[in-house]
Design a protein around this nucleic acid. Structure first.
Lengths: 109, 109
DNA sequence: ATACTGTATCGCAATACTACGATAATATTA
DNA sequence: TAATATTATCGTAGTATTGCGATACAGTAT
C-alpha cells in the first residue's frame, strides 16, 4: 500500500489536506514567512538565510508552487517568488471554516 | 538523510509544522470534522463511516492524539475522543497570526 | 472463568518525504 | 561565443507515512 485513499474523501477534504501538507514543514513555513515579511518577492536569498542546501530549498519551493501557494516569475537574473493571492484566500476560507466549527469546550471528555 | 533538520528552525515554526502535519491527511480532517459536528464525542463509529480499516483509523487517531489535537477518555465500553481545547486554541492563534501576515496582493510578480 | 465487544499494537509492503551532491538548464554579461 | 550567476533536475540514501491483516489487550456481560 502506502498511498492515501483519496477517492474515499470529499474534494474539499482532499484539497485542504493537500494545502496543509504543503505547509507542514518548518522550512516551508520559514520560506512563507520570509515571503510574507519582505512584502516584495525574494529568491535565492533563502539559501543563505535558512541553513539548507540550494537543491533542498529549490525542492521546497517547488512543492509550494505545485500546491499553488506561491508563484514565481523570472526577475532579471534570478527568480521572484511570491504568494498566490487566489490560493491564499482559499486557504483562509477553508481553514477559517474548519477552525470555526469548534463550538468551544462543551461538556465531554 | 531523510529527517527534518528541526534544529535550524524556531520552536514556533516546528510546532506549527507539527500541528499542520497532523492534520494534513484527508482521513484525519474527516475525523476532526466528525468530532466537531457531533459536538459530543464519538469513537469507533468512524470505522463504519470512513471506508478505512479499524487499524488504520486507530492509527490516525493516535497521530491526532500525539499531536495533542484530540484527547480520549474511556467511556464505558468504547473510547470517547474529543477536541483538546488548549491545542485547538493554540492552533487558531498560531495559524491566525500566520495567515494574517499576508498584506494582500501588493505589486509583485 | 468464558465469551464478546471495542481498541490498540505489531509487522509488513508499497510509497512518499527529506536532504544533498552533482549536473543540467537558463539567462545575463563580458 | 565564452564565462558567470542563478535555478532546476537527477540520482541516491535514509527515514517516515499509509494501509491493512493478524493479534494482543481491556472492559463488559453471561
Amino acid at each position: 500500500m502506502g498511498l492515501t485513499k483519496t477517492e474515499i474523501f470529499t474534494d474539499e477534504q482532499n484539497q485542504l489536506a493537500t494545502l496543509l501538507k504543503a505547509m507542514a514543514h518548518p522550512a516551508r513555513i520559514a520560506i512563507l514567512q520570509r515571503i510574507l515579511i519582505s512584502n516584495t518577492c525574494i529568491c535565492g536569498d533563502l539559501v543563505g538565510e535558512l541553513g539548507l542546501a540550494q537543491a533542498t530549498i529549490s525542492q521546497h519551493l517547488k512543492e509550494l508552487k505545485n500546491a499553488g501557494i506561491i508563484q514565481g516569475t523570472i526577475e532579471g537574473v534570478s527568480i521572484c517568488y511570491c504568494i498566490n493571492p487566489k490560493t491564499w484566500k482559499l486557504l483562509e476560507k477553508r481553514l477559517g471554516a474548519f477552525l470555526a466549527e469548534y463550538k468551544g469546550e462543551t461538556t465531554c471528555c
